[in-house]
């Protein structure tokens, strides 16, 4: 044992991993799912949050409560019916299925956090925009969205890690080789090469690497998000 020296250092494990498992494909799938889901969560979540925070209309509170239900009830409970629906619509084994599920899963908390922040955006600013003839859509996209950017970053970070790491939905909705996510891919790979330690440990390192990079980039945002009480 000990640290590898010039003689014992070898990248054989990584070679096996790259030869056997299609890690770049898995990585790409994970990336697509995570990025698209986050974009949809942020866009749809911010729009709904704006509607709830800005306008008074019949059923506003009720709509807020309806959307907040999903914060506490995990989406996994509905897996049987989700699978049935995805089979019926032919979306099983596509990345779209995963994206839809993660978007639905992330929306409740996103709406909740973002509407809290949007209530803090100055009314005078929005009214000035209205007087200048901006439409409600332009007020949202041009005035409000840039102002809640920090909150959006918090929401993004909170959702990113669970989506990236999820095993349940890829296992059930998209187990096919060409749509495997990195988490599922490394799980299967580890299972197959359970005695080839070089390969297994290389696979583990490769699976850790992307999240570590994401963490280094976003850690400040994540910690600020948690400590600013966004989850409370």
């Amino acid at each position: 044992m000990g640290l590898p020296n010039a003689e014992t250092f070898s990248l054989i494990g990584y070679e096996t991993v790259l030869r056997q498992g299609d890690f770049f494909l898995y990585f790409q799938n994970s990336m697509i799912v995570t990025v698209v889901s986050l974009t949809l969560i942020l866009l749809f979540g911010a729009m709904a949050a704006f509607a709830l925070a800005e306008y008074r209309f019949k059923g506003n509170t009720l709509m807020g409560l309806y959307l907040a239900l999903g914060i506490m009830i995990p989406i996994r409970i509905g897996t049987v019916a989700i699978l049935e629906m995805m089979v019926a619509t032919g979306l099983v084994n596509t990345l779209t299925a995963l994206i839809l599920v993660y978007t639905a899963q992330g929306l409740p908390l996103a709406v909740f956090i973002l509407s809290e922040f949007m209530k803090g955006v100055s009314d005078d600013l929005k009214n000035a925009g209205r007087i200048d003839g901006l439409s409600e859509y332009k007020i949202f996209f041009r005035l409000v969205l840039p102002l809640v950017r920090p909150a959006m970053a918090t929401v993004a970070v909170f959702n990113m890690i669970p989506i990236w790491n999820d095993l349940w939905f890829p296992l059930i909705l998209a187990p096919a080789e060409e749509v495997k996510t990195l988490t599922l891919g490394s799980q299967v790979f580890i299972g197959q090469f359970v005695t080839d330690w070089n390969a297994v440990l290389s696979a583990l390192s490769m699976a850790i690497l992307p999240v570590m990079v994401l963490y280094v980039i976003f850690s400040r945002q994540l910690i600020r998000g948690i400590t600013s009480g966004a989850v409370k």
Binding site: M47, A48, Y66, L67, L69, I77, P108
Partner: peptide, 14 residues
């Protein structure tokens, strides 16, 4: 958009 996705993929399957 939010209500549709949320209802169709979360509440309805639930």
């Amino acid at each position: 958009p939010a209500v549709l996705v949320y209802t169709a993929v979360m509440i309805y399957p639930l």
